[in-house]
């Protein structure tokens, strides 16, 4: 992620950030991944197609820094029985659309189509995602100000989705 802290953010920086985030998740570097989040950021996964109210009706996820940290530390924990053995995940990304690109204010938004695969033991599931990243510049370069993950089949009945699509 060169060129972020000391110079102007380029479109490639923004796109690289999205790819790098997915790579962290796929490689299980969850603690590093937590460092990407700004303190007030929210990870939202709607339950309803085109859901507009994230908190008045049920969402699949609506997690602040505390919940994300809890989620990651649980994944790394000794008595996390649903992760014995551990799950693995895999993202395939289409090139992100950069819908907002404003280096002056340090505000960026991307929309990325992804296929997400999660596996554990003999089970494997495939989810089709539309992921919206709100990114902002900070002293450490680009950081996540908000992430919204829309599942194509959000209204389907799922088994466990244990990692982070």
């Amino acid at each position: 992620m060169t060129g972020q802290a000391n110079g102007r953010i380029t479109r490639d920086d923004v796109i690289d950030f999205v790819y790098n985030e997915a790579r962290m998740l796929d490689e299980g570097r969850f603690s590093d991944w937590l460092e990407l989040w700004l303190p007030d950021a929210i990870y939202w996964m709607p339950l309803d197609y085109k859901q507009d109210d994230p908190v008045g009706a049920t969402s699949l996820l609506y997690e602040d820094n505390f919940m994300l940290r809890l989620r990651v530390e649980r994944l790394n924990g000794e008595r996390t029985f649903s992760q014995k053995p551990k799950s693995r995940c895999h993202h395939v990304l289409q090139r992100p659309f950069v819908d907002v690109f404003d280096p002056e204010t340090g505000t960026f938004q991307t929309v990325t189509q992804m296929h997400y695969v999660e596996t554990r033991l003999d089970e494997q599931q495939l989810l089709a995602l539309t992921v919206t990243h709100d990114l902002s510049t900070s002293d450490n370069g680009l950081r996540i100000a908000g992430k919204k993950v829309e599942l194509l089949n959000c209204d389907a009945a799922f088994g466990n989705i244990q990692l982070l699509p």
Partner: peptide, 10 residues
Amino acid sequence: SGPPLRYMHQ
């Protein structure tokens, strides 16, 4: 208030 969560259990 909104649709239910739907969670499949084997």
